[in-house]
């Protein structure tokens, strides 16, 4: 394997240390860092599929936000069904409600992804303009259908009882839900790294990103691989949407579209097609958003754009450029 380019991780480290200096109080810094990492990992969940799909097949899916929204809405319905278990006092019973809800969200995202790939995107491979138009159109229709099925109102998505509130660690407050988000995000990232670096399928995916034609020439059906990656990415987006809905404790149909902006920024920063870049970019965006939100709330909203501009000035192809 190629040696890893260490400069982007060092940049994350520099951001962490710089923020510590600027904020001063270590306990505040720690709370913000946990929040930033949690946010970053959730964004990574939602963005990873999109960037891999682009890397593999040169397809940019502007309807990716719909998978996020569907995941969140399915989670709302599932948690409502299991509201008894979700409200109980024991963590284990809570998990009995949470885990099926998350799986249902991922399943819904994956199924919708399969439908999108087969019906909407397949006829427009290789035509960027049409891809953008058609996926935007698909997004309009799907958002309207969500309105039809779940109604136009804002829905509440309560966290399970055991994940409400926060721990106190000395004078540092740690929200339980954020910690769980960090755990889930890291677990998915680890699983993805193992899959990509230690299995045959992962090898084929990485090879496909580098040079699609060569993989095909070796006799592998890259189309089939691509469908699998697309569905897996949509499922992750559904899962991420469910977690993000819980993070905010409410769900509207715009949850997906508003995340899309952040996701685009993350995958542009990371370098289109690169998973490692997507991870680093997501962490950077999450951390910077939280630090700046604390240091000067007025600037916070523009901080992501600013970050993107700075990164692109440094590396115009993103942190980890994928060779094409």
């Amino acid at each position: 394997m190629k040696s890893i380019d260490w400069k982007p991780p060092l940049l994350v480290l520099a951001v962490l240390l710089g923020a510590l200096l600027l904020i001063g109080s270590p306990s505040t810094w720690f709370t913000l860092t946990v929040a930033g990492v949690a946010m970053g990992l959730l964004i990574f969940l939602m963005a990873a599929g999109l960037t891999l799909v682009f890397g593999l097949m040169d397809v940019m899916n502007f309807a990716h936000g719909v998978f996020i929204a569907v995941g969140a809405y399915v989670a709302v319905s599932a948690m409502k069904l299991a509201s008894g278990a979700a409200g109980a006092d024991s963590l284990l019973v809570n998990l009995g409600a949470l885990v099926p809800a998350m799986l249902a969200a991922a399943l819904a995202g994956g199924l919708l992804g399969l439908f999108f790939e087969r019906v909407i995107i397949r006829p427009v491979y290789g035509q960027h303009l049409k891809q953008i138009l058609i996926t935007t159109g698909g997004m309009i229709v799907a958002e309207q259908l969500i309105h039809v099925l779940w109604g136009p109102d804002i829905l509440q998505l309560a966290r399970p009882a055991a994940l409400k509130g926060s721990f106190l660690l000395g004078d540092m407050a740690l929200e339980k839900f954020r910690l769980s988000a960090v755990v889930i995000g890291l677990a998915v990232f680890a699983a993805m790294l193992v899959l990509l670096n230690r299995t045959r399928i992962g090898l084929l995916i990485r090879a496909g990103v580098e040079n699609k034609e060569m993989v095909e020439a070796m006799g592998y059906r890259i189309r089939r691989l691509f469908v699998a990656v697309f569905v897996a990415g949509s499922a992750l987006a559904g899962l991420g949407g469910a977690l993000w809905g819980m993070y905010q404790e409410s769900v509207t149909v715009h949850i997906g579209a508003s995340m899309m902006v952040l996701i685009f920024i993350v995958i542009i920063i990371g370098g289109l097609g690169s998973v490692l870049g997507c991870f680093t970019g997501a962490l950077l965006v999450g951390l910077v958003a939280n630090y700046i939100g604390f240091l000067s709330p007025k600037v916070a909203l523009g901080s992501n754009i600013l970050l993107m501009v700075l990164v692109l000035l440094w590396r115009p192809q993103g942190l980890y450029a994928v060779g094409k």
């Binding site: 940019m60 303009l129 902006v261 542009i268 523009g302």
Partner: peptide, 22 residues
Amino acid sequence: KAIFFAMITLAVASFFQILASQ
């Protein structure tokens, strides 16, 4: 690429929208 332009303009436009309301 066209895709890159589309993504950048989406980000900039959403930023401008936030700016106008802030």
